[in-house]
Amino acid sequence: MEEVLYAVGDGIAVAKRNVIKIRRVPGILVSVLISPILMVLLFAYVFGSSIDIPGGTYREFLISGIFAMTVTFGATFTGAGLADDMQKGIIDRFRSLPMSRSAVVFGRTASDVVYNVASLAIMAATGLAVGWRIHDGIGPALAGFGLLLVFSYALSWVMAYVALLVPSVEVIGNVSFMVIFPLTFIANTFVPAANLPTPLRIFAEWNPVSAVTQAVRELFGNIPPGTPEPGVWPLQNAAIYTLAWAAIIIAVFAPLAVRRYTRVGVRK
């Protein structure tokens, strides 16, 4: 038990360092501040002006999709940050300290929750400015944000593992483009899944990104009235399906990442 408390303390010390860096590194600050604003404005005005959804505004439909997409891409930040650390001398320091072996990865994924909270707050403010509204009260809305954070936290562990396998910021960038990009677009993020061609529709219906988007849309009260009930289980039980994915991802990738960290050799 004492060891667990120490491990948590170590994780907090590492997370604190990462959070300080969010404020100090100009590139990170831009991506945490500017890119969420850009995302909301671009999608809201470019697509939001030209697509109509029966019974509601497309802009409201869209916001949850943008939130889901942005926090999914946020996992890239975990990978890039960890890959960067692994290439630098600081990792030798960490490895020579009597700290918990899991602290570097736990600290990293924890600090990225802070990063995602900041992104979401900025996106929500921008969303409110362009006409997005919460319709079912603050409680469900907070639950929606919580679900987005849990989902992105789980994905952070996947990217942490990738970064430990291939500690290269460039590779992380490529992986995120080739995997996360299709994952966030072949989904109900920007268009209702029902409208997609069959193979894509099936993928989209089972895609966890669709589930988190659907769940958040419901919690924000952004489902246009008259929208038909989704025809598949994952979208009918979107919150549960999302949490199940998050639990499985963490259960698989957290031990893998921690084990990988303890085994990875020092830079030559």
Binding site: R17, K21, R24, V25, K88, G89, D92, R93
Partner: peptide, 13 residues
């Protein structure tokens, strides 16, 4: 205590 060949300090801290 270890002091390495590459200064193991964080630039941004």
């Amino acid at each position: 205590g270890l002091s390495g060949q590459y200064a193991a300090v964080d630039e941004h801290l």
